[in-house]
Design a protein around this nucleic acid. Structure first.
Lengths: 338, 338
DNA sequence: CTGTTAGCGCGTTCAA
DNA sequence: TTGAACGCGCTAACAG
């Protein structure tokens, strides 16, 4: 690899001149600039971003830690982050915590060692609280993505999970449902907690009895499926709501095993959901996360933060859209009480 | 940020000793090592990967350029690459070319400027041939992922697209189909070309007439849909095969618009396909790409290449699995000729 | 077993 | 308008 020295020699200038034409950081005689450019072309010189970063103490790169690169919603977020990053002249360094506190910590360490200019964290469910405290100490510019912890002094971007869930459930109550099963999953995850919160809100407003709201929580898929299956078998429940894509898959599978189909026998809705839902049966009513936009928003917040490090933290909540489909349409069965 | 100098001073040793306990690169008295470790902890020192990389001319990072971060198959590849990367102590720098030659070139430039130790490329369809030539010149360790160009002197990993398509079509011919529509899409993409090749192979072996193999190629979605729609309306075709997820979506949508349903009226199969296919109707027969494994394989090849730069290039083809489902099962209509 | 020191390739002051 | 020279933080060769 050619370095500046070779370019300088070839162009018969000093390396400082080369640097300046490269960065446009001071005026240089058109004539000499031309010579330099020619020398660059002929040597195949390429600026060493490492040395440059070391010297400027700025890498023009950001780190992104996602908790599950597998889920489509996260993949879209990554996509959005990458897109907005290049738009802002930033390179993206990606790490995956696989929902594991230890890997998450290591990932953050690695990224910090690489001197990324900023960090975007979609935190793991069992994330070590100490991690965030440590970050508060060192205060590298950090954005929390998707999973919002409201009392934290960080910039954050998420979706209005609680409100959207409230709307979803309210609508279903209005159309006659009274006995719900909410497949909530791991409620240590703030996102899922918010969704559960929205369900509770709507239940209160709709004056649902406690026995009419079955909330299924937990980490173990088998256990979740079994609990759902059992309660389905009572025949009371008229609507199932899943709080994430994996929970939806699990729920649909459980429904199928129990010989229950939607929308004929039961109503069904989910958050996040599946791609191309309108091509397939059952057409599932889905709360779509603006995942791409969330990723992009995180980058924008980060860029802002880099510009004004002392500004007070902001939380951005993006709106979600409810895509109503047949799985919640065909409600005919009325609960016994009516 | 604390530097080695501060750690050294605090531990009353030289910076070289600090470096050596950090990297375990030479023996050091347990006593002094302890002092150093203590100093590191108390200063909150963190090794600067930039300076280290500059000095060693090795970044322990790899660059990945994907052509469409949106498609699930690519998302899975990214996932696989990331996973295998950390396993090998490598950090992943991600870029997206969005199927655009220009962005792809810029991405490669950026990555090279960052002095990544190696490159993994899932190339864009309209990728500039000059790009690869340039790479051959500079020869940074490079792996071509998913889209294989057989005559190129690079390590490559792909799937056995041709063979799998041949099997798929042969099986369908055997079960009685004779009039196919292949939605092939942009056949400049090697992957899609291979799949088309497999279709032709099977047609030959199955003695299909030329009028019995409708191959729909092109870039414009509208045009593809229209051509498929038109040929569907002739009522001759008994099987549609889509060569990628977006093409499958487009095909299913076209079928729906034409009032044709699978498997009742027509057989349907696709490559790549949709997540959780077994939960939804129609249950689509799908050739599943081992995307995660392909990503991981690319990293392994890269690590090998870094170890032995002069070894001759290898091409790895991973096997694909055909997931047979109902969309190809229910074949009753026989072509008029039988 | 430990310390001194010369760069890695750049950006940036200071002087001319 | 240009050049000389220092140092970012680190590794590794050399010396002791």
């Amino acid at each position: 690899m050619a370095t500046m020295v070779e370019v300088a020699r070839k162009a018969k200038v000093s390396i400082s001149t080369v640097s300046h034409v490269l960065n446009g950081t001071r005026n240089v005689e058109p004539e000499t600039r031309k010579r330099v450019l020619a020398a660059i072309a002929s040597t195949g010189y390429r600026q060493d971003a490492l040395a440059r970063a070391l010297r400027r103490s700025q890498t023009d790169s950001i780190g992104l830690v996602v908790s599950d690169a597998g889920e489509p919603a996260f993949a879209e977020m990554v996509h959005g982050v990458e897109h907005a990053a290049v738009e802002n002249g930033l390179t993206l360094v990606l790490a995956n915590s696989a929902e594991n506190a230890d890997r998450e910590k290591k990932a953050v360490q690695t990224l910090l060692n690489r001197r990324v200019d900023g960090l975007i964290l979609a935190r793991a469910a069992e994330s070590d609280p100490a991690l965030l405290q440590a970050l508060e100490q060192e205060k590298p510019p950090t954005i929390l993505l998707d999973r919002i912890f409201s009392q934290l002094p960080f910039d954050q971007v998420g979706a209005d999970n609680r409100e959207t869930m409230r709307q979803l459930v309210t609508h279903m109550i209005v159309s006659g449902h009274r006995r719900f099963a909410l497949v909530a999953g791991d409620v240590r995850v703030p996102t899922l907690q918010e969704r559960m919160g929205g369900f509770t809100d709507a239940s209160l407003e709709g004056r649902l009895g406690l026995d009419e709201q079955l909330i299924i929580t937990g980490t173990d898929r088998e256990a979740l499926a079994e609990e759902l299956g059992n309660s389905l078998r009572t025949g009371q429940i008229t609507a199932v709501i899943a709080c994430s894509t994996p929970l939806a898959a699990l729920s649909l599978r459980t429904l199928a095993r129990a010989g229950i189909s939607t929308p004929r026998d039961i109503a069904f809705a989910t958050f996040d959901g599946f791609d191309n839902s309108d091509l397939f049966q059952p057409r599932v009513t889905t709360v779509r996360q603006p995942a791409f936009d969330m990723g992009a928003a995180a980058v924008h917040l980060l860029v802002e933060r880099l510009r004004t490090p002392e500004a007070s933290p902001r939380t951005v909540r993006l709106q979600q859209r409810i895509e109503w489909r047949e799985s919640t349409e065909d409600y005919r069965r009325q609960p016994a009480g009516d």
